[in-house]
Design a protein around this nucleic acid. Structure first.
Lengths: 225, 225
DNA sequence: TTTGAGTTTAAGTTTGAATTAAGCCGTGTG
DNA sequence: CACACGGCTTAATTCAAACTTAAACTCAAA
């Protein structure tokens, strides 16, 4: 499995490379955006780990240019904390995942596997579904039967988080960390507002999916006919 | 919430401890690596704040040894600035987060919460069961066969206490101490009310589980087929 | 510069969990 | 027998959490 790391902090790149090599990955490193772009163009990599802050060409530009060139190698963005907006922009511009620094290597490996597996299996079809609803986390389109509804980014990411943890109760804090970002100072009321938005859109679609609140604890998805 | 601070700068350790105590944390301090390791071995802490530069045994060694000993208490590394290398190595050796010094106490608290919560998230569904009933103590959902019922927090905690002591008779006083808290001034009538609520919900589910009262003594769960 | 979608903040309202209070029932005792 | 006590249930109250709505703000696109 070939991995390209595009990361200007040489030490960090080497450290990650070392760990990956121990796990039988074949790793190359680019220290700036241009070099990374050139390497990635070859299309030989199974996955690209892409830093956002890079000399010569920033990561998001690299990503966009690659997709322009019809290179659809899976990309995992490495975001420094505080780049919350970048996360969103990144996913929007065609990244497959992002990983906030610092990260555990197990998590990195898990995501690499997830991202490559996904590609192998369904390429296009990573639609999330729960009950009678379907969410396309890339286009933020929510469907029920034939009817569609457009969600905003926040709504979509909140719903995505709820669906991917459908059996787990999620606290407001956990939701804020995941949807608003690690360093966000968003308050519970934000979550409340967006939960409310989602419920309204569920109702508009006539869905049987409910977002249940558990007092003093959190939220969980429910579906019953 | 019990926190262990392993930090050789005594004044810094005390300062942090003081702030944490104000936030209702129960804080212990170790001033060198060996002592920290010994304390951490007890496994009673919910999170460990670990300095890297330490007398007798450095933080990373402490961490590695702990993981060797199957102690998986979440660890937040405290790194002096410029210890970038340590960050990576540290995360690789099983730390859950790192925090560069100097840090704001709000941030420390936020990370402690994040790290302990994460642990809670992927804790496996430890569903309690008794007779024909199942209780998820996280979501307060009570099940019998396919049918579900939502309990309130108090109901769930009362039932949890009853189930985990299914062979023991529990006095009202014991129940109050456990469910309402040792400093509560709740009365027996309170317990009665909640016992009644539970029985009603058992009946609604058609369960064969009974809560038996023993006059002047207490309550105990019964199941008869 | 204006516009508007998306998001955040803030205010007012609703909900329901927890408590309290009141009355009923059954059992054991004088 | 009756009446007192422990236990049970239901009804009324309370108050913080959760919800909704609307207005304010932000920022990118026109």
């Amino acid at each position: 499995m070939k991995v390209l790391i595009v990361e200007d902090e040489q030490y960090l790149a080497e450290a990650v490379a070392q760990v990956l090599r121990k796990n039988n990955f074949d790793v190359d490193i680019s220290l700036d955006g241009e070099d990374g772009f050139d390497n990635a163009l070859s299309g030989v990599y199974d996955v690209i780990l892409l830093d956002i802050m890079l000399p010569k060409m920033d990561g998001l530009t690299v990503l966009r240019e690659l997709r322009n060139e019809e290179i659809f190698t899976p990309v995992i963005l490495l975001t420094a904390k505080g780049e919350t907006e970048d996360k969103v922009v990144g996913l929007d511009s065609g990244a497959d995942d992002y990983l906030p620094k610092p990260f555990k290597t197990e998590e990195l490996i898990a995501r690499i596997k997830a991202v490559t597996r996904r590609r192998g299996e369904f390429r296009n079809e990573d639609v999330l579904s729960f009950g009678d609803l379907e969410l396309d986390p890339l286009t933020f389109v929510l469907k029920r039967g034939g009817e569609k509804y457009s969600l905003t980014q926040k709504e979509a990411r909140l719903l995505e988080y709820l669906i991917t943890n459908k059996d787990i109760m999620l606290s407001s804090d956990a939701i804020i960390e995941k949807v608003w970002g690690y360093d966000s100072d968003a308050m519970d009321s934000n979550v409340q507002v967006y939960i409310s938005f989602l419920r309204k859109k569920f109702a508009a679609l006539g869905s049987e999916v409910r977002i249940k609140n558990i007092r003093n604890s959190g939220y969980i998805l429910e579906y019953k006919a």
